[in-house]
Amino acid sequence: MSAELLRVEGLVKHFPIRGGVLQRRRGTVHAVEGVSFTVAAGETLALVGESGCGKSTVGRTIMRFHEPTGGTVTFDGTDLSTLSTAQLRQKRRELQFVFQDPYASLPARMPAGDIVAEPLHIHGVGDRAGRRARVRELFDLVGLPAQAVSRYPHEFSGGQRQRIGIARALALEPRLLILDEPVSALDVSIQAQVVNLLARLQRELGLAYLFIAHDLAVVRHLAHQVAVMYLGHIVEYGDADTVFTRPAHPYTQALLSAVPVPDPRLRDPARRRLLQGDLPNPADPPSGCPFRTRCWRADDRCAAERPALRVRTPSGADTACHYAEEDARNEGARLSG
């Protein structure tokens, strides 16, 4: 296990719902409800879950695009909330963000070279020639041709734009990238290129990734650790191989079984664990276990008591389900019997 780079503890983010003529507060969206995890240097933690689970809010709150409602974010041993604005700006050099939609996140009126050079300008890195050389180096690093520096975002394809976004994020030599759905807006044939690029950059530059995604196959390919989120909570968290091969939380099981397998010979409708209904309203979350309204396992205990996220089986990941131990025992008995 490598050194811990990012530690998030008890992160909470609530959004007020305002309405009416006076914009009074009418309710609260519980987007993130006490989320804790760590990202090790040079490794990838994937935050997975479906829309509305709060995974993007976690990434954006770490970046301070939103102010956190509660909890601490420690980067490289420093609690970010204790830093002054100026210190935070310095720290941010080591912590960068890549957006899902590269077109919306790149300034339309700047040529690609200026976009990638902007972080260097902001932090006063190098002189004119030095910056130009650095931009050329970054273009090469992400696989963009050198003559592309003078072109504008609208002249690139989606995959190329995402490369520009990645080059910009890499300009200040960060140690951690928060990647918010970086390939989900891309065409299938381009996704693989960008996934490979991310894997290569991690190898070559020793980057750590907080990889926020809903595409489990992509996560499987890139992640070392996985945290599965549901309705603002992490319900399962651990080593990627363990979570993918021995999911202990019913939600993780349902999620994995729902992914269509691109091979007709493996077609098996019985494999799918179909969930009932929709995600509950995050402004009015259920009592107890957040997943209980859709869980086949749920009973009175689940409504009364929220299961803690902890190790529940010897070989399993941390799981927030009261019945993970029992299910694992039954599964073991079924396999041996």
Binding site: F65, Q90, P107
Partner: peptide, 14 residues
């Protein structure tokens, strides 16, 4: 609130 502005803020711009 848009990504293009958040992105620049994330780079450390004032």
């Amino acid at each position: 609130e848009q990504d293009s502005i958040l992105a620049v803020g994330g780079l450390g711009a004032g």
